Amino acid sequence: MNNVASILILIFLAISFIQSGYDKLFYWKDNLDWLKSHFAQTKLKNHVPLALLNILILELISGVLCIVGSIELIVNNGRVFGLYGAIFSCITLIMLLFGQRLAKDYDGARTIVIYFIPAVMAVYWLN
């Protein structure tokens, strides 16, 4: 078990993104209503549904790649899917961070950084 830390971070990212994607998918209207008000004073105000769909797709891709990457690490020490999962996670988090900064939600942006740190660690370890 040389990859325990990487596996744990990939599982952490998978749970985070799959749960978030599930929430967006099954509570689409609630999320859309909240985000429309959140971004009402920004340049994204007319693009919230498209942005939400984009984030949903990226979260689900990130989560699935992290799950497959965890299994790959356990089964044969492969790192390809885990690395892609970590990279997609970082891209998704950067997009979320951009949105929070644009909306001037600095507490929300700070929370995203907490997720970004282990995602970058996973990229480093799996590269």
Rank of each mutant, 00 (worst) to 15 (best):
28 W>L: 04
79 R>N: 13
9 I>R: 05
19 Q>T: 15
44 L>I: 01
115 Y>C: 07
51 A>K: 09
90 C>E: 06
33 D>L: 06
81 F>C: 06
33 D>C: 04
84 Y>S: 07
45 K>W: 00
43 K>R: 12
74 I>F: 03
22 Y>L: 14
75 V>D: 14
59 E>S: 08
8 L>C: 12
77 N>W: 07
25 L>Y: 11
29 K>H: 07
104 K>G: 05
52 L>W: 00
103 A>K: 03
100 Q>I: 06
112 I>D: 00
123 V>S: 08
44 L>R: 00
95 M>I: 12
126 L>G: 00
51 A>G: 08
112 I>T: 05
49 P>W: 01
17 F>Y: 05
35 L>N: 03
114 I>G: 04
104 K>D: 09
14 A>C: 10
34 W>T: 07
103 A>N: 04
85 G>S: 10
101 R>M: 15
113 V>R: 00
20 S>Y: 02
30 D>S: 15
89 S>M: 01
96 L>T: 05
66 C>N: 09
10 L>I: 06
95 M>V: 13
24 K>V: 13
16 S>V: 10
74 I>C: 02
106 Y>N: 02
21 G>A: 09
57 I>T: 10
95 M>A: 10
38 H>W: 06
27 Y>N: 15
111 T>K: 15
12 F>P: 03
17 F>Q: 02
110 R>W: 03
81 F>T: 01
63 G>A: 07
82 G>S: 10
61 I>Q: 07
123 V>M: 07
99 G>L: 01
9 I>H: 01
27 Y>L: 05
36 K>D: 08
69 G>P: 03
33 D>V: 08
83 L>K: 13
113 V>D: 00
60 L>Y: 01
126 L>C: 00
3 N>D: 15
33 D>I: 04
124 Y>P: 01
67 I>E: 07
8 L>T: 11
99 G>P: 03
84 Y>H: 07
108 G>Q: 06
12 F>E: 06
52 L>Q: 09
88 F>S: 15
63 G>L: 06
119 A>W: 00
16 S>H: 05
70 S>F: 04
49 P>Y: 02
11 I>H: 09
58 L>H: 03
101 R>K: 13
18 I>V: 10
93 L>R: 00
83 L>P: 03
119 A>D: 02
51 A>E: 08
83 L>N: 11
3 N>T: 14
1 M>A: 14
58 L>Q: 01
23 D>Y: 08
5 A>R: 07
11 I>K: 10
45 K>R: 11
122 A>E: 03
84 Y>N: 06
63 G>V: 05
103 A>E: 05
125 W>E: 00
110 R>E: 02
36 K>M: 14
45 K>S: 08
69 G>K: 04
65 L>P: 11
99 G>V: 02
46 N>M: 02
112 I>K: 01
107 D>M: 09
101 R>V: 13
41 Q>H: 14
113 V>Y: 00
68 V>F: 14
62 S>K: 04
4 V>K: 09
54 N>Q: 14
100 Q>E: 15
55 I>S: 12
10 L>T: 04
72 E>I: 08
93 L>W: 02
97 L>T: 12
22 Y>W: 15
25 L>G: 11
9 I>W: 04
31 N>M: 07
100 Q>N: 12
115 Y>S: 12
39 F>E: 00
4 V>W: 13
63 G>F: 01
87 I>Q: 12
36 K>Y: 02
83 L>A: 10
91 I>E: 00
23 D>W: 09
12 F>N: 02
76 N>A: 12
78 G>T: 05
8 L>E: 06
6 S>R: 04
59 E>Y: 10
